[in-house]
Design a protein around this nucleic acid. Structure first.
Length: 471
DNA sequence: TTTTGAGTTGTTCGA
DNA sequence: GTCGAACAACTCAAA
């Protein structure tokens, strides 16, 4: 059993099939930093992976097995492991990243040439991207019809539990987890991650249960409020396959809330994950190239200084900076704020969305090639079914609307703590007495805005106008 | 083949 | 303060 991004024992099709053979099963994980090229896993994601592997190894040991850890190009490592162990078959759950598809096909070919059975399964998606075409056979490019078709024709079957009889044996000694170098050493910047997250299958189910018990009913409204704990925070668990979308779907149904506003809205977010994978599969350039080629002519005039202000949370727009600091500290950012921060990078700072995509890739614990690429292209306006060009978020209005008391900003930008709700999203509008009372020296404790949003908006509209004709 | 209806998440302006 | 319209035109998906 070759584990990849399916780090769970429950509802794991490849593991179930391996168990069903009755043969002894060796469990392996390969840290392959070679095959992904530029899309090698980022720092925050590596931290998560470390702990998720540790968790899976503990679970396997309880069943008499263990996880064999190996590093290197899976095209070499997997066949070598087969030779060493005398394995007769290798089972795994599919991945959809372009580099992973190429790699896995090669592994499969090599194994089959050697007379080894190689089987892959669907362990990550409700519907395989090739199983949900439009009536003309083309892939869906618009979310709503895609989601309708999925619900009508591809509702997932009941999730399976853990294999009832699993004959695990220990494989050869591989690398020690510590030697895979997944954790930051000097400096150890993972303190905020440890505070906020517990990787692993059990924690994933706890998160989901807590969400369904306490938050899903009000989700349609509270999901937009970054100062409240209104979302499920399941994204990293889903990314690593500690829980399957099918399990999520059925837990929500079992709760009886699937048809409520909150339940429907939440399940549609699972739908967006599916849609992103559908796009990535059919358009493998999605992470690297504008889906709409006319965006190739867009003039990205923002430079390194602006990018630095954005990544450090020093743009002078509190809602943007709060989000960027939450990301840096916890490896996660609230979805509403992701949209605001993305809109700001692209439409206020005129920086190519791919730079934002790369930053998120490195800093998010839930960094996922499909979701990250599809969402950045959506925000930039360059994607399939993207936001209309005139949809430019106003960071002040958004802050006032979705963080009305300023709690979220105060949490992540302590230097603005003394400002009231009226000024906290636009500190430059406070008069000098108010600033003095709050103990804020603008330009010293907290930056002046790096750009004037009203001007930037006009410039963005003009820039979009320029690339409008001739698609 | 042609037609028709629709398309995640917003902002601004003027009445 | 509130509300509706304008912001473009295009592409997608299905009838």
């Amino acid at each position: 059993m070759w584990f990849r991004q399916d780090l769970r024992l429950g509802d794991n099709p490849a593991l179930l099939a391996a168990a069903a053979t009755g043969a002894p099963v060796i469990c392996a994980y390969v840290l392959d930093d070679v095959s992904p090229g530029v899309w090698k896993r980022g720092g925050a994601s590596r931290w998560w992976l470390h702990h998720s592997l540790a968790s899976l190894d503990r679970d396997l040991k309880r069943q008499g097995g263990a996880l064999t850890l190996l590093a290197g190009d899976a095209r070499d490592v997997i066949p070598a492991l087969v030779r060493k162990t005398g394995a007769r078959a290798v089972y795994w759950n599919r991945r959809y990243e372009p580099w992973a598809r190429t790699r896995d096909e090669a592994v499969k070919r090599t194994l089959k040439q050697g007379g080894i059975e190689a089987r892959s399964f669907n362990g990550s998606l409700i519907v395989e991207p090739w199983d949900i075409p439009t009536k003309t056979g083309a892939p869906y490019k618009v979310f709503t019809p895609f989601w309708k078709a999925l619900q009508a024709g591809h509702a997932p079957s009941e999730p399976a539990g853990r294999p009832a009889r699993l004959n695990l044996i220990k494989g050869p000694h591989g690398d020690a987890l510590e030697d895979l170098d997944l954790l930051p050493q000097s400096p150890d910047w993972a303190g905020g991650l440890r505070e906020h997250w517990t990787p692993g299958e059990e924690a994933a189910h706890d998160r989901l249960a807590g969400f369904i018990a306490n938050r899903i009913e009000a989700y349609a409204g509270t999901r937009n409020l970054p100062g409240r704990h209104g979302t499920s925070r399941l994204s990293p668990h889903l990314h690593f396959g500690e829980i399957s979308p099918r399990q999520v779907w059925h837990r929500v149904r079992q709760s009886g809330l699937a048809a409520s506003d909150g339940g429907r809205t939440y399940l549609s977010e699972i739908g967006w994950r599916e849609f992103s994978y559908n796009l990535l599969y059919h358009f493998p350039d999605l992470p690297d190239a504008n889906f709409q080629p006319r965006f190739d002519r867009f003039e990205w005039t923002g430079g390194p200084a602006q990018l630095k202000a954005w990544t450090r949370g020093q743009t002078g727009y509190p809602i943007v900076d709060a989000g960027m600091r939450e990301l840096w500290r916890t490896g996660w950012m609230h979805n509403r704020v992701r949209m605001i921060a993305a809109s700001f990078l692209v439409k206020d700072l005129f920086i190519d969305w791919r730079q934002g995509e790369a930053w998120f890739w490195d800093t998010l614990v839930d960094a996922d090639l499909a979701s990250n690429a599809a969402s950045w292209q959506w925000s930039a306006g360059s994607g399939a079914d993207a936001a209309p060009y005139f949809r430019i978020f106003n960071p002040v209005t958004q802050g006032e609307k979705f963080d009305p008391d300023g709690d979220y900003v105060r949490k992540w930008i302590p230097e603005l703590h003394g400002l009231g709700a009226k000024q906290i999203h636009a500190p430059w509008t406070a008069d000098s007495a108010e600033l003095a009372r709050a103990g804020v020296r603008l330009g010293t404790d907290y930056p002046e805005p790096v750009v004037d949003h009203a001007e930037a908006r006009k410039a963005a509209l003009a820039a979009f106008e320029k690339i409008k004709d001739a698609a």
